[in-house]
Design a protein around this nucleic acid. Sequence first.
DNA 1: CAATGAATAAATTCGTCATATATTCATTTA
DNA 2: TAAATGAATATATGACGAATTTATTCATTG
Lengths: 214, 214
Amino acid sequence: MTNLFIGSDRRTQKETALFEAALDVFAEFGFRKAGIEDIARRAGIANGTVYLYAASKRDLYKRAVEYGLDAWQAHAAKAAEEAAEGTEPGRGRARNRFEALCRAAYSYLAAEPRLRRIMSRDPSLFPAAPGSAEGDDPFESVNGRSVAMLERAIREGVDTGEFAVEDPAAAAELLFSLYRVMIEKTYVEEDGGERKRFEAGLSIIMNGISARGA
Amino acid sequence: MTNLFIGSDRRTQKETALFEAALDVFAEFGFRKAGIEDIARRAGIANGTVYLYAASKRDLYKRAVEYGLDAWQAHAAKAAEEAAEGTEPGRGRARNRFEALCRAAYSYLAAEPRLRRIMSRDPSLFPAAPGSAEGDDPFESVNGRSVAMLERAIREGVDTGEFAVEDPAAAAELLFSLYRVMIEKTYVEEDGGERKRFEAGLSIIMNGISARGA
DNA sequence: CAATGAATAAATTCGTCATATATTCATTTA
DNA sequence: TAAATGAATATATGACGAATTTATTCATTG
């Protein structure tokens, strides 16, 4: 173990290149028609090297998508934190955090055609997609964290009196589902009205969870 | 194919029997594995008679589902009207109508496993389902009427000051989409928490569209 | 003349081979 | 000597025709 840092660093770089290439190829061709050879070439590694980072093509798909979802989530979480930082607790902080979370998540995806494409092709990526059963979500971990993030944001508002929601957990689940629809509407229709629909939806939701007196 | 629009009583009865049988079989086996012979037998008519009411198996599917959606919609519309009847305009009538509309639509589907099954099997039945494009909705007519019904209910509330919504058309579209999610969550998970999620969602929406002073 | 159901056309399944591509592993590299 | 390679191998996929099932038609019927 002469240089553990460089070793792990190189490994991470290679892994990143692999997942980026995988996202490109899976997005362009879908799971079936995507080729390991193509992915390996684009990542600048050999065919067999792929199997040092994933157990199978399916596993590579899962890891690459998880990598993409993680980046998306991290971006949204960061934006929410930054929005909350400038505000005093209770003085609209929960609203700011919640709204920033929604906006950042939405706009990040607008700039990530690969994830949109992949999710469009493969509805099973979302928990309650038709055909999937209870424990079926392959991204339970990421999606679960997203729902938890929403729930925390809502609870903060409820605690400070900014929000009035009877069941924050159920509300978070519902909003996550609603979020899926907005995404669908965005990538499926692409009629130029997405932004408007997003704003209309966000407005209703913000109003819907806000306490009357606030 | 003969004239499909001449509606004698016998024909209507036969048509109804055919569509009912078709809903049964399509729900049980899905479009592909459903057999015309099976449907005809259950409807008590001969094989060839089916083609007096539909141009093809695909057309029969479309007509049968449309028949089912029509019944669903009619039920919800009736419930909304009845709820509105007892209330003076402006004195909570819009709220009553809107809430009744949502509840009736939801509970009707809970009692109609065939429609749930069919929609579950065939996500393309809904306008913005993955894979479908702009003019792709085979049930544009029914779905369009549903959205219009929502929009009218919202506009009534806006006019009387009960609701505060910037863009009723966008809101109606959004709510219709949200409705799809509730349905998905209902028939996919069946974990006993549907009712709770429905109530949580309806509460946020009702609050979200309501005017602050109302 | 609406309705029928046997006749016909069309679609689907199944078995086989040919091709492509996912995966392994003996060898090389750094 | 652990990580990486890429040719070798196993597995999956696609193409094709025959066999079978199923959708659709239409001459006949009540």
